[in-house]
Each structure stands twice: as C-alpha cells, then as structure tokens.
Design a protein around this nucleic acid. Structure first.
Lengths: 149, 149
DNA sequence: GGTATCTCGATAAAGTCAATCGAGTTACTC
DNA sequence: GAGTAACTCGATTGACTTTATCGAGATACC
C-alpha cells in the first residue's frame, strides 16, 4: 500500500473536521491553510468525500464542510481505500481487481503478499478519526490530560 | 508499500534462480519465458541484482545467471527494498528520506503509519527465497512431500 | 573465427499524479 | 433583490514515473 498526497490530504482534512466536530462548518480555505494543502486540489478531494457520504456541505456565507457522522464511526482504512482505490501491495492480491496473475501457478510469494495486505488492513481499519484526534491533541499539548471534542 | 512490475519481476526471477540453485547458470531468455517477463526489461533488472551482489553471471555459450548466495540467505524484504526504493507507505515515515512532514506537529496518524511500515517490513523480512521455493513447489505439486532444491 | 550470451547507456511510449483553471450554482445577508 | 461568500464540476496541463525497447559493444567458449 502506498499513500499518495490524495489519501494523505484527505485524511488530514478529515482530521481537521473531526477536531472541529459539532462546532459548525469549516471552510475549504481554513482547512487548506491549517494543513498546507493547495486549495483548488483540496476542493476536489472534499467533493469525493462528500459524495461518499462522509461530509455535508453548506453553501453561502458561513457555509463550509462538516462531518456527516461522528469521528468514531470513520476509520482511516476506509478513507485510504476510498482515496487510493486499493490497499493491496500488488494487483494479484487485490480483491477488487479481476486481473489475474499469469504466473499464479508457480508463484511462491502470493501468500506472503496476502499476509501483508491483511496486516495493513487490520491496522488501518482499527483506527478511527476519534483516535487520530486524540493523538493529534497529545502532540499539540502533550501535558493536557483532558479530552475535548 | 506498493510493488510495481520491477519488484515483482525481480522476485519472480529470483524464485526461478532459487529453484535452479546449484544446477548451473540459467539464461535470461529461459527465466523470461517461464515467468512471462519482457526479455529486454528483465535484462536490466538482473543487472541491478547482480550489482547488488545477489547474482553472478557468466558470458558466452552455456552462460547465464546464478545466485551468488544460497536462497535461505536472501529475504523478500531486501529485494523489494532494492528494487522499489522503499517500503514506507508514505514519505514522512520513510527512514531513508530526509524530507520532513510540514504538518508533523498536528498530525495524528503518523504513528499509525509507522506501525504499518514496521508490520510490512516484519513480514517481508521473515520470508527467504528458500521458503518461497517451498511454497511454489507446493503449488506445482501439492501432493509431494519431498524436498529438493 | 564465429556464435551465444551478458553489458550498458540512450531513448521513447504510456500512464499516473498533482495540481490549476474557468465557469457555473446556491444560499445567506442586508 | 442585489451582492457576495462559498461550494460544484468538468476540462486541461505539466511533471514525473513506469515500463519498457533498441543498438552497439564486450566476453567466453568451441
């Protein structure tokens, strides 16, 4: 699995939105500025997230984006899969691909690659954005033990 | 981590050479044919493997490539790293990269990505080409319990 | 001397990634 | 109801990477 800027930016945007959850919409410009993402590119990514049901948007003055569900119901794994297309390290162990490996019958490492894929998926699917927020807050204010959303 | 044809082809070539270990050199054409790899492309990959010390070559009639060390001393992990450049899912957790993440101070998922990187490395580094041969042979002749190199 | 084979660097075709742009549409505010 | 702030959407572009392909050469064996 490789994470390109697409998945990276999307995850970072969702982190910002999670940290702002229940406090009204956040504007594209604000997210882009805080995470140093090109605005016009972020625009596209937020649209993808919206169409997939993760975000709600509001137009006009005081508009912006907000989460369509609480941070603890969104995992990093689903976002990466949505943005990157797959998590498989190689096409022959990609469940969403129907392309078949020509050497499958004499391939000794396909099994290993399946293990890799599953290990990665297990880690990413077990982390929600609530957890990501918690970790981000620990970095920003390491001494704080309180927990605000 | 993503495995492109480069790492894929290299690993498959090494598998062929491992299965032929101690039985003299194998020619590029033979390897290419068995694994359905473009000959002129495989040529380049074998050169990389040779320069890195994994292969020996012999020119002229009955020449070809052979392993420079026994299959159990080569891991899939080192080959993937050699061919793909890195195993890190993203630049900010790539130990060989000096590029720094601009958002590190407020990033909640860098830790998760480190976990992913280490999990992948652990799996790939624990598999040698001896093991890969064993698995390939099981596929080719599932009933055989004998073990030949 | 001739043939089989590896060696090496240059080049090219194709695809992907990461934006950038322009022209909308919607909704709020005054 | 005019104006402005904000999201929407599709097209395009430039750079880069991947995946080869090619031609000419060097080496070893018979």
């Amino acid at each position: 699995m490789r994470i390109s800027t697409k998945g990276d930016y999307a995850a970072r945007a969702l982190q910002e939105l999670s940290m702002h959850y229940d406090r009204g919409p956040l504007q594209i410009d604000a997210i882009a500025e805080r995470q140093e993402i090109p605005v016009r590119y972020l625009e596209q990514l937020l649209l993808i997230l919206k169409r997939a049901g993760y975000l709600e948007s509001k137009r006009g003055v005081k508009g912006g984006y907000s989460l369509a569900k609480p941070p603890h119901q969104i995992t990093l794994g689903e976002i990466i899969r949505l943005m990157e297309g797959t998590q498989a390290p190689i096409f022959c162990v990609d469940p969403s691909s129907r392309e078949k490996c020509p050497a499958e019958k004499r391939c000794g490492f396909q099994g290993v690659l399946v293990e890799v894929r599953d290990a990665v998926a297990h880690i990413l699917d077990s982390v929600t954005f609530e957890e990501i927020c918690r970790r981000a807050r620990l970095k920003i204010a390491p001494r704080s033990t309180s927990y605000h959303i």
